[in-house]
């Protein structure tokens, strides 16, 4: 492994912990076996890796941990098919092959000095968690922060417990965490869709960067609400999904857009700005 310059070669990674988050979704902690790679590997929030299960194939998965923790990374993986089923069988001590990180990631340097509003629906918290963790690890670089995490039911809220456990830190650090569900009558907390809680955010619309991730159908309403509440459309970012085979701009599967704006989601994205999205049919 990694004896040549082959861009498709894999780094061997050891599974350290497997944690059930919600039904069908697990959080896995990995460490690079090769000390040189562990030392040198870095990533940006919003980037992804290609994870290989031998004889089954590769899947793109967002890095969901803070890039600040050297040598380790976490992936939050939903069981949906051949490869991800097998990933769910992994135990601590098992090995997987990983390559990356790929993609542009969120422009976190540009975010510095501004407020941050993170809006997640469904499994959308997975990529946004890396932005959130990064912001917490670099708290002094950002203004107020709000996280809106939404799901249908209380027991399908991704990272619910983790976010609840952060309550004290959040209070001390001017971070507002809003967890909301849409279809759970037994849920004691907030209800309604993510966009209905934008008005409860502690962020100043004039100087806020917004990151949104969720299923394609949520974007329009979220965008409309943000703009109605005076958030700057130039500061709204989303992270997109596509079928991906290579992750490095070769296989063509993730190509999207039109003849004047043809993009590879894997290298030009997966993070795109609001204006890219609304002016490009088929991007979301």
């Amino acid at each position: 492994m990694n004896t040549t310059e082959n861009i498709y070669s894999l780094y061997k990674c050891r599974v350290l912990r497997v944690y059930d988050l919600i039904e069908d979704v697990k959080l896995l902690l990995f460490r690079f076996e090769n000390p040189d790679i562990a030392e040198s590997w870095t990533c940006k929030p919003g980037q992804f890796v290609q994870l290989s299960m031998p004889a089954l194939g590769e899947v793109p998965i967002s890095i969901c941990s803070s890039p600040m923790r050297r040598g380790f990374f976490e992936l939050c993986i939903k069981k949906t098919g051949r490869v991800t089923d097998k990933i769910h069988e992994l135990k601590p001590g098992d090995f997987v092959g990983v390559r990356g990180p790929y993609g542009n990631g969120f422009p976190v340097d540009e975010f510095e000095g501004s407020d941050l509003l993170l809006i997640a629906a469904g499994i959308g918290m997975a990529p946004l968690r890396s932005v959130f963790m990064y912001a917490v690890d670099n708290r002094w670089k950002f203004g107020n922060i709000t996280v809106i995490n939404s799901a249908k039911f209380g027991n399908t809220l991704l990272f619910r417990k983790e976010l609840e456990a952060m309550r004290d830190v959040a209070e001390a650090e001017n971070i507002r965490i809003i967890q909301t569900v849409t279809r759970d009558p037994d849920w004691p907390g907030r209800v309604g869709r993510a966009q209905e809680h934008i008005k409860h955010a502690n962020t100043d619309p004039e100087k806020t960067y917004v990151c949104v991730c969720g299923p394609p159908q949520v974007y329009e309403d979220v965008f409309n609400t943000l703009i109605k509440n005076n958030y700057d459309p130039r500061k709204i970012y989303v992270t997109l999904e596509r079928r991906m085979k290579c992750g490095v701009g070769k296989c063509g599967h993730c190509i999207a857009g039109t003849s004047t704006f043809l993009k590879y989601i894997c290298i030009d994205g997966p993070v795109f700005g609001y204006y890219d999205i609304i002016s490009t049919p088929g991007l979301i």
Binding site: M1, Y8, S9, L10, K12, S52, P54, A55, V96
Partner: peptide, 14 residues
């Protein structure tokens, strides 16, 4: 062919 895979050892050789 991109790689020969050894499933047990999880290695991918060009």
């Amino acid at each position: 062919k991109m790689f020969d895979i050894d499933i047990e050892n999880g290695t991918y050789d060009e």
